[in-house]
């Protein structure tokens, strides 16, 4: 078991390393290929004329004159804390986890990520609960009676839901529940700590529209697993010894049918943290996705780099937890 965990842990570090190298690498390519000073991508302006000694000094101060591997190493060690200065204003202390300073937004990248983090986490957790409960319920009832009306309705609905993008369902839900019926307040995040009810109301539509697509996938998956499990011999045995239907379905059927769902869930939840960009932008939630797309518009490279790496870390941690859990749940997995 220890060896299994260690191997997976090494794999995790490898993934984060590769993501960081690639992301860092493409940001080194940009100034090289476009013949623009890297200072521009870092601070948003080139304060001195090209070739001037002041600009050279600035390039030296930021370390852009170093070989790329050295720059990468400095970035990596810098994560554990460093002092940032552009030479004109007061130096900024950047404690762990330090991803640099956003000169466009005048704040530490870690502070920006720290502010955005709870929004994305609220969105992901709420949506995950909704889609797990919804998807598994629909899938179970469909799988118990394949071909029935419930099954057909459920699966048609699921197929339709998979085909609907959030950037369509989102505005339609907003139009219906906010602008027309007025049941919910407008867009924007309300922190849980200041106003729990407001938080719930502000997150309800984002949860529903994000959960919609996943619920459909989970319903289809649960259904096919359920059909397979209910055809197993041990279910027939359970029926033969006179167990009531509820016990058979819940204790014997669902339990086996849900094991693969756990795996998929871990992967999906991990990926979700990096893919709520569209939901956040539809509902005007200032989460990680919104932060990254906003940084793209402002060409704020340190922020994009930081968000991408944080998302990669979240993703591999989720995958890691699932792998370990799976090995614990399912004894057939070789440890």
């Amino acid at each position: 078991m220890i060896r299994f965990i260690l191997v997976r842990f090494a794999g995790m570090i490898l993934v984060v390393f590769i993501v960081s190298v690639l992301t860092f690498g493409i940001f080194q390519l940009a100034p090289l290929l476009s013949h623009t000073s890297p200072v521009y991508y870092y601070t948003g302006k080139v304060p001195y004329p090209p070739g001037s000694p002041q600009l050279q000094a600035l390039i030296h101060r930021f370390g852009f004159d170093q070989p790329i591997p050295v720059q990468y190493w400095q970035f990596l060690t810098g994560i554990f804390g460093k002092t940032i200065t552009d030479g004109t204003s007061a130096p900024v202390q950047c404690p762990f986890p330090c991803f640099g300073y956003s000169f466009r937004q005048n704040d530490l990248v870690s502070t920006l990520i720290g502010n955005a983090w709870p929004v994305t986490l609220s969105l992901c957790i709420g949506a995950a609960i909704l889609w797990l409960v919804g998807g598994v319920l629909v899938g179970t009832f469909s799988g118990l009676k394949p071909g029935s009306f419930v099954d057909r309705a459920g699966m048609t609905g699921a197929l339709a839901a998979v085909s609907l993008p959030i950037f369509f369902t989102g505005p339609v839900l907003l139009l219906l529940f906010v602008y027309t019926l007025g049941w919910l307040p407008g867009t924007g995040y309300v922190p849980l700590t200041t106003d729990p009810l407001g938080w719930f109301e502000s997150m309800l539509l984002p949860w529903v529209s994000l959960a919609f697509i996943f619920a459909a996938l989970y319903a289809r998956l649960t259904r096919s697993n359920m059909i397979e499990t209910m055809g197993e011999d041990y279910i027939r045995t359970a029926r033969a010894k006179g167990l009531d239907r509820r016990t058979i379905v819940v204790k014997h059927g669902l339990r086996a049918a849900l094991t693969p769902i756990v795996t998929i869930f871990g992967i999906d939840f991990g990926t979700l943290i990096g893919s709520t960009v569209i939901t956040e932008s539809v509902f005007n939630l200032r989460g990680l996705g919104y932060l990254s797309i906003q940084s793209v518009r402002q060409q704020d490279l340190p922020v994009i780099l930081g968000v991408t790496i944080v998302a990669a870390v979240a993703l591999v941690i989720a995958n890691f937890i699932v792998d370990v859990l799976y090995a614990v749940i399912d004894p057939r997995v070789t440890v």
Binding site: V15, A30, P31, T271, I293, I304
Partner: peptide
């Protein structure tokens, strides 16, 4: 394949598209 499947694809795509946009 494992690495690519556990990649923050959307964020990385955003980064890549931004950078190629500069070029």
């Amino acid at each position: 394949m494992d690495v690519l499947l556990s990649f923050p694809v959307l964020l990385f795509s955003i980064a890549l598209i931004t950078v190629t946009g500069f070029i």
